[in-house]
């Protein structure tokens, strides 16, 4: 059913640095419904990790702007105080699997200690019950329960990743942010983890925000895809359209530059490099590299809605 679990409108996150203001997330909007997975696809420096941090509110000290609207299950959370967000939202409704997940396990703690921590500290669950839920969580991600009592350095990369996923699911959240969950893994392990994520998605009805630079892998989970460039979403829509017939010139360029295993399409790269997030160019940020650039692109392109099929930020599809 189309009940939105995450609604983001005009989200902005800027950082203050020695050399200027970094506009990491510059007015991003999207909606994810129950059980849906949205993939956020972009290259390095596009701001996707900042977006993840904005959603889970892991913000550094030098934030100069954090505005817009984030609604989780209809409840506005951006305005909440840090304490309230910490208590009610983070690790209850929304959890986060970070990029360096393999390093986020404390090597002097046992697996069980990791898993019961959020329950005991956050929810005040009694220890015995917490251990039981930890056991269930491990089984759910396909690890035998003997591993509960092992130390994390005894686990392989793939197993660590499963433990981290178990950790993210233990509080039964509605939304899990996956920030490059498989980048550091071998392809076989990656496939196993993706299979697990698919299974959990179907069984538990969780919504994923799947952030990755690997478009091919993103298609393994995505119902909707957002293409991010220079701090903005240039296109957002269903997987069916984005992977086969993207609209935005950047999305097109991206899909044309990926070698395919099963087909033989001709490839082309995108000339130039992405703009800096400090003082981005006026107007369309992709203009310097766009093969379809027109004079009007010097003006900020409008967001063209495509019905329920998402939107695209480009003069080619409407506006004046």
């Amino acid at each position: 059913m189309t009940f939105p679990v995450l609604e983001v409108r005009d989200l902005k996150l800027f950082y203050r640095t020695e050399v200027g203001v970094v506009r990491a997330v510059d007015s991003v909007s999207f909606t994810i419904n129950e059980g849906e997975t949205a993939a956020l696809v972009g290259e390095s420096g596009c701001g996707k990790t900042s977006l993840a941090r904005a959603l889970i509110r892991f913000l550094p000290r030098n934030v100069s702007e954090f505005s817009g609207s984030i609604k989780i299950e209809g409840v506005e959370v951006l305005g909440m105080s840090d304490a309230e967000f910490d208590k009610k939202i983070r690790w209850k409704k929304i959890t986060y699997v970070s990029q360096a997940a393999l390093n986020s396990l404390n090597s002097v703690m046992r697996v069980v200690d990791h898993l019961i921590e959020p329950l005991v500290i956050h929810y005040g669950t009694p220890k015995r019950e917490a251990i039981e839920r930890a056991r269930e969580a491990l089984v759910r991600v396909g690890i035998s329960e003997d591993f509960l009592w092992r130390y994390s350095f005894e686990l392989s990369g793939g197993m660590k990743q499963r433990v981290v996923i178990a950790l993210s699911l233990i509080s039964n959240p509605r939304i899990v942010i996956l920030d490059e969950p498989t980048s550091a893994l071998d392809v076989m392990t990656q496939a196993n983890i993706i299979n697990l994520l698919k299974e959990l998605k179907n069984k538990l009805g969780i919504s994923y925000v799947f952030i990755t630079h690997d478009i091919a892998v993103s298609s393994e989970l995505a119902d909707k895809v957002a293409v991010m460039y220079a701090g903005q979403f240039v296109e957002y829509g269903p997987a069916e359209r984005i992977y086969t017939d993207p609209l935005h010139p950047y999305s097109k360029g991206l899909l044309n530059s990926i070698p395919r295993l099963r087909t033989d399409t001709s490839l082309a790269s995108i000339p130039g490099s992405p703009p800096s997030l400090i003082n981005p160019p006026k107007g369309c940020r992709f203009r310097p590299r766009c093969p379809y650039a027109k004079p009007i692109c010097a003006e900020e392109p409008p967001l063209i809605t495509l019905g329920s099929d998402g939107y695209v930020r480009c003069w080619l599809y409407g506006g004046k």
């Binding site: 392809v187 196993n192 299979n195 298609s219 393994e220 997987a239």
Partner: peptide
């Protein structure tokens, strides 16, 4: 064969299939 099977191409149908992998290490 297993390696070729598990590597995805960008394809919206990927999310409906479970890939055949090799378990273990």
């Amino acid at each position: 064969e297993a390696l070729v099977n598990v590597i995805p191409d960008p394809d919206p149908n990927n999310r409906f299939i479970t890939r055949k992998t090799l378990v273990g290490e």
